[in-house]
């Protein structure tokens, strides 16, 4: 299949970027990233600088790959990362526009590569359970209802790719933050710190310059792990309880 690619090229954060057009000969069994490999191989053969994009595991779990394909983070398929998107979902002669994640908190580094360390800092602000190595009791000492563990898992499935931020018209990281707040808050082990955790994480999220949630649901629709919007409601609840309900004056 012959494709026209329009790819965002930007040398570095300081420079201005633009879409550039390329012709690529692809095959329907290729993954989207393998199609980009073909493009890059041909660019290198022409002694040009290949398109920089992030990718690693190529099996949909590391969260590295991040590109907006025809306006949709990770492309048109539901619950699919870019690396798992296969070319059989495109047609011969298609024009595909590939852009980087866009959000103020994700500055562009080069081409399609952006800096997502803001997400790391949200986790560092409180996305953990404060237990040192060796302090744990027997793993079966606390029984956890099967459904409750499953609920925590559904939130914990987040791969930290940032598609929620990229999809959100407000550049909000609520879904990412909520997924961690709900994962840990749902487990009895993490319930203990929930109040301080949710406040710290929301504060950090605000500080990083992410936008505010207006409940458009764009994040949920483009999340490759299909993390639910209900997590945001749960986080709102936890935050309100922590801010208004706790005795702490901060």
């Amino acid at each position: 299949m012959k494709l026209t690619l329009k790819v965002w090229r930007q040398q570095n954060n300081a420079s201005k970027g633009a879409l550039e057009s390329y012709q690529v000969e692809a095959n329907e069994h290729m993954s989207f990233l393998e199609m980009l490999d073909v493009l890059n191989q041909s660019l290198v053969e022409e002694k040009k600088v290949p398109v920089a994009f992030e990718h690693d595991c190529r099996e949909g779990i590391c969260g590295s790959c991040n590109m907006v394909i025809n306006g949709r983070p990770h492309g048109p398929n539901q619950g699919t990362t870019t690396c798992q998107l296969h070319m059989r979902y495109f047609k011969d002669g298609d024009t595909i526009v590939v852009e980087p994640w866009r959000a103020k908190a994700f500055p562009v580094i080069k081409d399609l590569v952006v800096d997502r360390s803001s997400l790391d800092r949200i986790i560092q602000s409180g996305g953990y359970i404060s237990v040192n190595t060796g302090q744990a009791q027997d793993a079966n000492a606390i029984a956890i209802e099967k459904d409750r563990a499953a609920h925590a898992f559904d939130a914990a499935a987040c791969i930290g790719c940032g598609a929620c931020v990229a999809a959100c018209p407000n550049g909000s990281a609520m879904l990412f933050t909520a997924a961690k707040v709900v994962h840990l808050g749902t487990m009895p082990q993490g319930e203990v710190e929930e109040s301080t955790r949710v406040q710290a994480m929301v504060n950090q999220m605000d500080e990083e310059g992410f936008g505010m949630c207006s409940n458009t649901g764009a994040c949920e629709a483009d999340c490759p792990k299909e993390i639910s919007l209900t997590n945001i409601a749960e986080m709102n609840r936890a935050y309100l309880a922590a801010s208004l309900g706790s005795q702490k004056k901060s």
Binding site: V68, N70, E99, K104, P169, G209, G211, M212
Partner: peptide, 9 residues
């Protein structure tokens, strides 16, 4: 402001 620039598509 948080969104920055918009997508082409």
């Amino acid at each position: 402001a948080a969104k920055g620039s918009k997508y082409a598509v």
